[in-house]
C-alpha cells in the first residue's frame, strides 16, 4: 500500500485526524455488512495506521484512499494462504493406499452441516470418487432419516446405527466399513452443539481424537452475527483442550460458510471468522440443492463488502 502511494505525485500528507471521519464511516459500513463490531474496528485501525503520514495522490479524496487501502487489506485477508483444494489431497491419499479420506463436519445447531455434507458428497462423486456417509448425529430427531434420504438420492452408501449410540464409535465403525469396501471418502455428520456446552464439546473432541480424520470442517452460516467468531474459536479451543497430551492434535482445518444466498451483500461473517482465526473458507453454500456448493470468490466478496 505504502509504495503504491509513494509512486504518485502527491501533495498531501495524511494525518490521523484527517483520517478519523473516513475510517469511522467505513467502520460503520462494515458493521452493517455484518462484520463483527470489534473486527470492523481493528481492521479500520490497521488501515488507518498504514495510511498515517502517507502522501496522498492529489486527485484522490481521503475516502477513496481509505477504501482502496481497505480493499487491499480485505483481499489479502481473504485470500487463503494454502490451497483449499481437497481433491488433490484425496487423490494423494488414495494413491498411497492410505485408506479412506475422512472429513468430519461440526458446528452449532441448524447451520447446514448435514446439507453441506450431502453437497460435498455430490461434488466428490462428480469427480469420480466413491463416498460413504456416516450418520453420527445420533441425537436430533430425524437426523438419521435426513442423511438416509440424501444417501438414497445421491446413490452413495450410508452407515448408520440408529439413535442414542456413541457417535465416536459409530464413526470408527463407518470408517472400518469404508476401508473394507475400498471407499475413497467418508463424510462424518455430527449433531449440532452449542460452543459453551462442555459435555457435548468433549464428546466431539473424543470423536475427532479417536478417529483422526483428514479434515475437520467447521460449518457456520453467513447469517450469523457476533457469535460466529466465538463459535469457531471455541470449537477450536475445545478440540485442542480435549486432545492435550495425545500425539497429533486435530483442529478445525476449514470453514464451510452456508446460506450465502440469504444475506444479499451482508457477507461480513466470512471476514470475521477468517480474521479471528486464520482458518480458510473451503466451501460456501449458496442454496438448498446439491449444486449449491461453491468455493469462495474473494474478489466478489470484497466488492460486496465495499459496496
Amino acid at each position: 500500500v505504502v509504495s503504491f502511494f509513494r509512486g504518485l505525485a502527491g501533495v498531501q500528507q495524511l494525518t490521523a485526524t484527517e483520517l478519523a471521519p473516513a475510517l469511522a464511516s467505513v467502520r460503520d459500513a462494515l458493521i452493517s455488512k455484518n462484520v463483527t463490531a470489534d473486527i470492523a474496528e481493528r481492521l479500520c485501525a490497521s488501515v488507518g495506521a498504514s495510511l498515517d503520514g502517507v502522501t496522498m495522490a492529489s486527485m484522490t479524496t481521503i475516502t477513496a484512499t481509505v477504501r482502496s487501502a481497505l480493499r487491499d487489506a480485505l483481499t489479502r485477508l481473504l485470500t487463503p494462504r494454502q490451497s483449499t483444494d481437497i481433491l488433490a489431497d484425496i487423490a494423494a491419499k488414495r494413491a498411497a493406499g492410505g485408506g479412506p479420506f475422512v472429513i468430519v463436519y461440526c458446528g452449532v445447531n441448524g447451520v447446514g452441516k448435514s446439507t453441506s455434507l450431502a453437497k460435498t458428497a455430490f461434488y466428490l462423486q462428480r469427480h469420480g470418487l466413491s463416498v460413504l456417509l456416516a450418520a453420527c448425529d445420533t441425537f436430533r430427531a430425524g437426523a438419521v432419516e435426513q442423511l438416509r434420504t440424501h444417501a438414497t438420492c445421491l446413490g452413495v452408501t450410508l452407515y448408520d446405527r440408529g439413535y442414542g449410540r456413541d457417535a465416536a464409535g459409530v464413526a470408527s465403525d463407518a470408517i472400518r466399513r469404508a476401508r473394507e469396501a475400498g471407499t475413497d471418502v467418508v463424510l462424518v455428520d455430527t449433531a449440532g452443539r452449542m460452543q459453551d456446552n462442555g459435555p457435548l464439546m468433549a464428546a466431539l473432541a473424543k470423536l475427532v481424537a479417536a478417529n483422526d480424520p483428514d479434515r475437520v470442517f467447521f460449518v457456520g452460516e453467513a447469517l450469523v452475527g457476533n457469535d460466529g467468531v466465538d463459535q469457531l474459536t471455541k470449537f477450536n479451543a475445545a478440540l485442542a483442550d480435549h486432545q492435550a497430551g495425545s500425539g497429533r492434535v486435530r483442529l478445525v482445518d476449514g470453514v464451510v460458510l452456508t446460506k450465502f444466498d440469504t444475506v444479499d451483500d451482508r457477507v461480513g461473517a466470512a471476514v470475521s471468522m477468517v480474521y479471528a482465526t486464520g482458518v480458510p473458507v473451503v466451501f460456501v453454500g449458496v442454496g438448498q440443492t446439491y449444486m449449491d456448493l461453491r468455493t469462495m470468490n474473494t474478489g466478489a466478496l470484497v466488492k460486496a463488502l465495499l459496496r
Binding site: S114, A118, A141, G142, V144, E145, T149, C153
Partner: peptide
C-alpha cells in the same frame, strides 16, 4: 415436503 427427513423429525418429536 422439502427438507430431507422433515416428516420423520416432526413425527419423532410428536411421538415422544
Amino acid at each position: 415436503t422439502f427438507r430431507a427427513g422433515a416428516f420423520d423429525q416432526l413425527k419423532q418429536n410428536a411421538t415422544k
